[in-house]
């Protein structure tokens, strides 16, 4: 639906880039930078880290342009790269945290919890969900649930595309999305209860 606006499809652009057209690369960057930034930011919840992830993604696309074969959609390929980089960042962060916590007392550990955001009375009345609250709930989800819920509900990708990006069978993706939504609801209830 998005590609209808463009003169060339993503696959045509990457083919031109593989043939040496640097302008095609810049157009790819223009098309995907914001989408990938949104995906990476929702994943790691840090603007600088997210931008680094997106830059790394485009650098990898530049370096490994010939690795792409037109057997899969270009969007699937680039989302897979971003997802893998985001997971690496999370893993590094977790390792850092483990190292850091091992030097702390249990009392100090509690101080690193997210501060609970205030909810206005109007929001409470409307039942509107605070953006920060939902973002916190997403971050608390296990990695495989987080990936599918961002790709499905924020990036609006199809089940088939998510299946290709995550390298999981279609049935697994469907059930994973369902469980991720139920899990997210439980997290939100938990976060509201702690306020």
């Amino acid at each position: 639906m998005m590609q209808e606006r463009f003169k060339f499809t993503d696959e045509e652009l990457i083919a031109r880039f593989q043939a040496g057209d640097e302008g095609a690369y810049e157009e790819i960057v223009g098309r995907y930078a914001d989408r990938l930034m949104n995906f990476a930011y929702r994943f790691v919840l840090d603007r600088e880290e997210a931008e680094d992830i997106v830059q790394d993604t485009f650098l990898k696309v530049y370096q490994n342009r010939h690795a792409y074969k037109e057997i899969a959609k270009f969007s699937t390929w680039i989302y897979t790269i971003t997802g893998n980089l985001a997971k690496t960042v999370l893993r590094k962060r977790r390792n850092r945290k483990l190292f850091f916590f091992s030097r702390l007392n249990p009392e100090e550990e509690k101080e690193t919890e997210f501060p609970a955001p205030e909810r206005t009375p109007a929001e409470q009345l409307e039942g509107k969900i605070d953006e920060r609250l939902i973002q916190q709930a997403i971050v608390k989800l296990p990695e495989h649930f987080r990936t599918v819920i961002i790709l499905r509900d924020i990036q609006d990708l199809s089940y088939e595309e998510i299946s290709n990006i995550t390298s999981a069978p279609l049935g697994t993706v469907k059930s994973r999305i369902n469980r991720a939504r139920i899990h997210l609801q439980a997290e939100l209830e938990h976060l509201r209860g702690t306020r």
């Binding site: 930034m37 930011y41 997106v54 953006e131 939902i134 819920i149 939504r181 609801q185």
Partner: peptide, 22 residues
């Protein structure tokens, strides 16, 4: 609740790259 969460996720503001990204 799940329907409302889904709508909230879809309406989350889009985060773009910075100006000097390119």
């Amino acid at each position: 609740n799940i329907r409302r969460n889904r709508e909230a996720l879809q309406n989350l503001p889009s985060i773009g790259v910075s100006e000097n990204f390119m």
